[in-house]
Simulated scan of single mutants.
Amino acid sequence: MSRKHHHLKESEVSCCVKYFLFGFNILFWLLGAAFLGIGLWAWAEKGVLSNLSTITDLGGLDPVWLFVVVGGVMFILGFAGCIGALRENTSLLKFFSVFLGLIFFLELTAGILAFVFKDWLKDQLNLFINNNVKAYRDDIDLQNLIDFAQEYWSCCGAHGPDDWNMNIYFNCTDLNPSRERCGVPFSCCVKDPAEDVINTQCGYDVRLQWTMYIMVWI
């Protein structure tokens, strides 16, 4: 009798663990599906899915890639963990565990390499930012990402406002017909708390005015 009772107690604990893992992984799975769906929907809106060659046309980063890659990995992991826990499939659970371990190992390796090769990484990061500055107007998602980053970190370009000379719309060359010539994006401006509406033209001519001020002062 006591042996039977002990067996039932072990079975109950095992069942709780199983459904806890199932519930956690199904949320992970659905979240991954949502990320993947948002990414594919964004690509469909931009016409990428109808012409896959345009994926590589953008000079900078397409933020949709983050949704697609992260969503795809979460979807696969969530599916393996969910079905593996529900069906007690050891193969899927092993795949789930190995994949998580691989991700952790890659993150650890990336952190070590970033510390060892920090100067090289800094140069690559500057190059990456500059390429995205050049492609600022080429993609609305990239534009929104750069504006968010500049507002969040209160910065303007990688080193300063003059980085925007690399963009054809903002550079200060005399032949540039753009109204944004010698300006910066509105996300570079210091926001006035009293303003309810964002002034998207606050960056117009700001670097031109600064250049003229220096010339006069000299």
Rank of each mutant, 00 (worst) to 15 (best):
1 M>F: 09
5 H>Y: 10
5 H>R: 09
8 L>I: 09
8 L>E: 13
10 E>F: 08
12 E>T: 09
13 V>I: 13
14 S>Y: 06
19 Y>W: 15
21 L>R: 01
26 I>A: 07
26 I>V: 15
28 F>G: 06
29 W>C: 11
33 A>V: 13
34 A>W: 06
36 L>Q: 01
38 I>N: 01
39 G>K: 01
40 L>W: 03
42 A>W: 04
43 W>I: 03
44 A>L: 06
45 E>A: 12
45 E>S: 10
46 K>S: 12
51 N>R: 14
51 N>Q: 12
52 L>A: 06
53 S>I: 07
56 T>G: 10
61 L>T: 14
62 D>A: 13
65 W>F: 15
66 L>C: 02
67 F>K: 00
69 V>E: 11
69 V>I: 15
70 V>F: 14
72 G>I: 09
74 M>D: 05
76 I>S: 03
76 I>K: 02
78 G>R: 07
79 F>E: 05
81 G>V: 04
81 G>D: 07
83 I>Y: 11
84 G>F: 10
86 L>K: 11
86 L>E: 03
86 L>H: 12
87 R>I: 00
90 T>D: 04
91 S>D: 08
93 L>I: 07
95 F>A: 13
103 I>K: 08
103 I>V: 15
104 F>Y: 00
106 L>D: 00
109 T>S: 15
110 A>K: 00
110 A>C: 11
112 I>P: 01
113 L>P: 09
113 L>I: 15
114 A>C: 05
115 F>M: 13
116 V>E: 04
118 K>E: 11
120 W>I: 10
120 W>M: 09
122 K>R: 15
125 L>V: 15
126 N>I: 07
129 I>G: 03
130 N>Q: 14
131 N>A: 13
132 N>C: 13
133 V>H: 05
134 K>E: 11
137 R>L: 05
139 D>R: 08
140 I>R: 12
145 L>K: 09
148 F>M: 07
149 A>L: 11
150 Q>T: 01
150 Q>V: 02
151 E>P: 02
151 E>G: 13
151 E>A: 06
152 Y>S: 12
153 W>G: 04
153 W>L: 14
154 S>M: 02
155 C>Y: 02
157 G>K: 10
157 G>V: 08
159 H>I: 05
161 P>V: 09
162 D>E: 14
164 W>F: 10
165 N>V: 05
168 I>L: 04
169 Y>I: 06
169 Y>K: 12
169 Y>W: 12
171 N>V: 04
172 C>Q: 05
173 T>I: 05
175 L>K: 13
175 L>D: 15
177 P>W: 05
178 S>I: 13
178 S>E: 07
184 V>S: 00
186 F>H: 14
186 F>I: 02
188 C>I: 08
188 C>T: 03
190 V>A: 10
191 K>F: 03
192 D>I: 00
192 D>P: 03
192 D>M: 07
193 P>H: 05
193 P>Q: 06
196 D>Q: 12
198 I>V: 15
198 I>K: 04
202 C>Q: 10
202 C>T: 05
204 Y>L: 15
206 V>K: 00
207 R>M: 09
207 R>N: 01
208 L>W: 10
210 W>P: 00
211 T>I: 06
211 T>A: 15
212 M>C: 02
212 M>G: 01
213 Y>V: 02
215 M>N: 11
217 W>Y: 03
218 I>H: 14
